[in-house]
């Protein structure tokens, strides 16, 4: 009962926000297009989409590639900000003590109250791109790609939740107000291959990319964009990697956020 109401609290929070802030609803709906425009616009500065295709050897329509990257990148940013960065926001509005006083572990509260909101918002953003994907592709191929992208969003979120909660554990224990995520997020996206395929980046960044769950989520999205009919084997492999990372990162977060909370309680950082 408690956990269900926790899941519901996240959805209600967004419904209340959008109800009271129509401009926020509008910006939420516009944001995916703005982000795609930004990525495409920035890319165009270095050459046309066909030049990008030539340089990267990408066997797909670059537009679809960037759409897929945009959707996954936004989902990744959303998870990082909402789970990892939520601690700072709650501290800023003075609600952190009251969230901590909820009869759940802080990691459970942060993650469970966020999952329904994430699915709801990410799938809306995916649907916003659906007409473009279907226009560029044909109906059957477009629908298939949308389904693989939806899968990437859902499965890719699982390890990212734990990964982001690791940052929450750091933020909760330090009194520092600087938002590490504001400079870390773009780097994570870059290393994960959201802006440029990871395998074309320098070797040392590729090593970092292996431990980032977003790399595999983006790879899953890339598969959706470059393969005419996505094959089961590579998709299954990537899902397996993501599920493995889910166990590792969420277990780590479960332990570390508890340590972070105790440190914060000891230091008086709450």
């Amino acid at each position: 009962m408690g956990l269900i109401s926790l899941l519901k609290s996240g959805i209600m929070l967004d419904i209340y926000f959008f109800k009271n802030n129509k401009s926020e609803l509008l910006s939420m709906l516009l944001w995916p297009y703005l982000m795609l425009g930004l990525i495409l616009g920035a890319g165009m500065l270095f050459g046309s989409t066909s030049a990008f295709k030539q340089n990267t050897g990408l066997n797909a329509d670059p537009i679809i590639y960037f759409i897929a990257s945009t959707i996954v990148a936004m989902a990744a940013i959303s998870v990082m900000w909402e789970v990892g960065g939520n601690i700072l926001f709650l501290r800023w509005i003075g609600a952190l003590p009251y969230v901590l006083l909820a009869p759940h572990r802080i990691s459970t509260t942060l993650i469970l109250s966020y999952i329904p909101r994430y699915l709801f918002l990410s799938l809306i953003q995916l649907l916003e791109f659906a007409p473009i994907i279907i226009l560029v592709e044909n109906l059957s191929s477009g629908v298939l790609k949308i389904l693989v992208l939806a899968l990437a969003i859902v499965v890719g979120m699982l390890p990212l939740l734990g990964f982001s909660a690791l940052f929450a554990s750091i933020l909760i224990s330090i009194k520092e107000e600087t938002h590490v995520l504001s400079w870390l997020n773009p780097l994570i996206l870059l290393f994960s291959g959201a802006l440029y395929p990871a395998y074309l980046l320098p070797y040392w960044t590729q090593v970092i990319s292996w431990i980032l769950p977003s790399t595999y989520t983006i790879e899953l999205a890339r598969l959706a964009s470059i393969i005419g009919s996505p094959q089961l084997a590579p998709i299954t492999f990537l899902i397996g990697v993501l599920l493995g990372m889910t166990i590792v990162y969420n277990s780590l977060a479960y332990i570390l956020i508890d340590i972070g909370e105790r440190k914060a309680l000891g230091k008086g950082a709450i």
Binding site: S5, Y16, N20, N21, L101, A102, P103, S113
Partner: peptide, 25 residues
């Protein structure tokens, strides 16, 4: 008393949100 709630929520919505967080439904 001067903070600790979501600014863009009404008083009633804030109470409902925290109620759900505390396991009420």
């Amino acid at each position: 008393v001067e903070k600790g709630f979501y600014w863009k929520l009404t008083g009633k919505e804030n109470l409902k949100y925290f109620g759900m967080l505390y396991g009420l439904d």
